[in-house]
Amino acid sequence: MTKPSQELLRSISDEHVLRALMMWRSLTRAQLAEITELSKPTVSESVRRLEEAGLVADTGERTPGGRGKGRVGSFYSLADVGVALVVTISHDGVTAACVDAYGDTVSRVHSPIGSPSEVGVVLPVAAVEAVAGQHVRLAVVSAADPVDRHTGRLVQLPDSPFLVGALDPVEVLRPFLSGPVIVDNDVNWAAQAEHAATGISDFAYLYLGEGLGCAVVSDDAVRRGHSGLAGEISHLITVGPSGEAVPFIEVFGMLGLRQPGSTAIDVARLLAADSRTLDAVARAVSGVVTALVTLADPEVVVVGGPWGPGLLHAISSAPRPLDLLAASVEEPSLGGASAAALERLRTALVEASRNS
Score class of each variant (00 low, 15 high):
Gly114Met: 06
Cys98Asn: 09
Arg108Tyr: 04
Asp92Arg: 14
Cys98Tyr: 11
Gly82Trp: 03
Gly93Arg: 10
Ala84Gly: 12
Val83Gln: 04
Asp100Ile: 02
Glu118Leu: 06
Thr95Leu: 07
Ser115Ala: 15
Gly103Lys: 12
Ser117Trp: 05
Val106Ala: 09
Thr95Ile: 12
Gly103Pro: 11
Val99Ile: 15
Val86Cys: 04
Pro116Leu: 04
Cys98Thr: 15
His110Cys: 08
Gly82Pro: 05
Gly114Tyr: 08
Ser90Trp: 02
Tyr102Glu: 03
Ser90Glu: 11
Tyr102Val: 00
Leu85Met: 07
Ala96Cys: 07
Val94Cys: 02
His91Asn: 14
Thr95Gly: 05
Val81Ser: 02
Ala84Tyr: 07
Val109Met: 05
Tyr102Lys: 01
Leu123Gly: 03
Asp104Trp: 03
Asp80Gln: 15
Tyr102Ile: 00
Ser107Trp: 03
Val81Asn: 09
Val99Lys: 10
Gly114Glu: 10
Ile89Asp: 02
Ser90Leu: 04
Val121Gln: 01
Val122Cys: 02
Ala97Ser: 14
Leu123Arg: 07
Asp80Asn: 15
Ala96Glu: 01
Thr95Glu: 14
Pro116Phe: 06
Asp104Gln: 07
Arg108Gly: 02
His110Arg: 14
Gly120Asn: 09
Val81Trp: 03
Leu85Tyr: 05
Gly93Val: 13
Ser111Lys: 13
Asp92Leu: 14
Thr105Lys: 11
Ile113Thr: 11
Val99Leu: 15
Pro116Cys: 05
Gly93His: 13
Val119Ser: 08
Pro112His: 00
Val109Gln: 09
Leu85Ala: 01
Gly114Lys: 07
Leu85Gly: 00
Ala101Lys: 01
Asp80Met: 15
Val83Thr: 11
Leu123Ala: 13
Cys98Gln: 06
Gly103Met: 12
Ala97Lys: 10
Ser117Asn: 08
Ala97Gly: 03
Val106His: 13
Gly120Lys: 11
Gly82Asn: 12
Pro112Tyr: 00
Arg108Pro: 03
Gly120Trp: 06
Val94Arg: 00
Thr88Leu: 10
Cys98Glu: 09
Ala101Arg: 00
Gly103Phe: 13
Pro112Lys: 02
Val94Met: 02
Val81Tyr: 02
Gly120Leu: 07
Thr105Asp: 10
Val99Glu: 08
